[in-house]
Design a protein around this nucleic acid. Sequence first.
RNA 1: GCUGGGUUCGUAUAACGGUUAGUACUCAAGAUUCUCAAUCUUGCAAUAGGAGUUCGAUUCUCCUACCCAGUACCA
Length: 487
Amino acid sequence: MGGVRTALYNYLYAKQHGGDFILRIEDTDSQRFVPGAEAYIIEALNWCGIVPDEGVDESGKVVSEPSAKHPHAPYRQSERRAIYRAYAEELVAKGWAYYAFDSSEELAARRAAAEASGQTFIYNYETRGALRNSLTLPADEVERLLAETTDWTVRFKMPEGRVVAMDDLIRGHVEVSTSTLDDKVLWKRADELPTYHLANIVDDHLMEITEVIRGEEWLPSLPLHYLLYEAFGWERPRFAHLPLLLKPVGNGKLSKRDGDKMGFPVFPLNWLNSEGETYRGYREDGYFPEAFVNLLAFLGWNPGDEREIMSMQELINAFSLEHVSKSGAKFNPEKAKWYNKEYLRMKSSAELAALYEPILKAHGVVCDRAYVEKVIDVIKDRATFVADFWTAAPYLFVAPTEYVEKDLAKFGTPEYYAMALEAVESGADLEEFIRSREWPMGKVMNCIRLALTGSGSGLGIHEIISCIGQEEALRRVRALGEKIQQS
RNA sequence: GCUGGGUUCGUAUAACGGUUAGUACUCAAGAUUCUCAAUCUUGCAAUAGGAGUUCGAUUCUCCUACCCAGUACCA
């Protein structure tokens, strides 16, 4: 959800300003490669109607070869390996970075040692002079290690005592002292891949990105990114850091497991992870993509007026970073359902019938489209999802086979039954008929409802009979009679 | 711990120095009805605390509290 919302805001911003929305796959962590994730992202965006202008071709594949429509290809960072090394070397040559030969084990040991004495180990201006890198080792030794070993990295040489003044489109002016920052790894010899920081800056520059709208978790690394643009001498894009999506109850950000615990999806589409666990998706849960997009847009943003139901086009027109809130938004599953209900109501019966038919088929019901539409007209207002059409009133398609015991005891008495039968047999207006006889309206009507639906609550009698017909209604009433006689 | 960010009804938010602090979801009550929903009406409910600036602070400044993020050869 969080990822889709970020993509949505980027998309809305781009479209509003006549820009292009580019999809780039940031897969520089070979350890964390997840099969199927890329196709999933594209399918999910596509379902939401967030279609990239660049990066993905008509068949839904990430583009690898540059073309007129996709001039910045390849769009997968793992296919851009060759690009990054030169930029990393450029930074070393300019004195903004250096080679580091400390092994992960060595660094882990230092962190552990520092932690044991209640301190935190930071690779920075204070410690790099005592570590194994091109700043401390003799030149010939550096040359040798560079040539003969493969586990070295290029680290950013974070300056000491500088204040980086930044502007965020959502948070305003932010200042950070570089002395609190560390020497981040930019490039790894082991897999010849950059880390996020280098790859992101290089690609944003190469792909002519003008606005970076991303999650708040990136705010702490914004100074590094500013410095990286400065080091390269590139014009930097504008930045906006979005508030996080929080758990509906308790503290903390929304996590994958919260959905299962609290009964709502956190994924746009069903997701099956490598451990074989399935996470529910909004699509499979029956949400309309328009509703999903709408509710996502309002998680941390509002149009400044009192509109709440907005189409993608309306969102594009109204979106503004100034109206994005600074604080995290607790997700409210109830409101999410409300959105879907609103969208369901706006849809035509024909449209809904097409969506309902597969469900009917699964229940073994075969009937014509006109009847399905008629039924939908009657039950539309009591549904949140298309699937509710069935659970709300299966009796519009199949006769009840059993009766709710409590209601049977209350309304299924021989006395009320006799009245119900007479009323329905008359074929006259039921209310008028019952009133003219001065019979108890509620009891007799509920007895009829019991016969028709199997329970004492549900749709109006008129509505039910207008669907199933007088003949079927009479048949069901007589079936109830048999049931009463048996017991 | 350190660094940064945040804090208006239960939730999402409006009010960008002057309002009886608005709206939506949820919840409650009433109306309606053959029941249940739906619908309509009404109601409950908030500026974290403390200093300051100001004629006047939800809004600006500072302090405290709490929440969140970052602190990886992850993104």
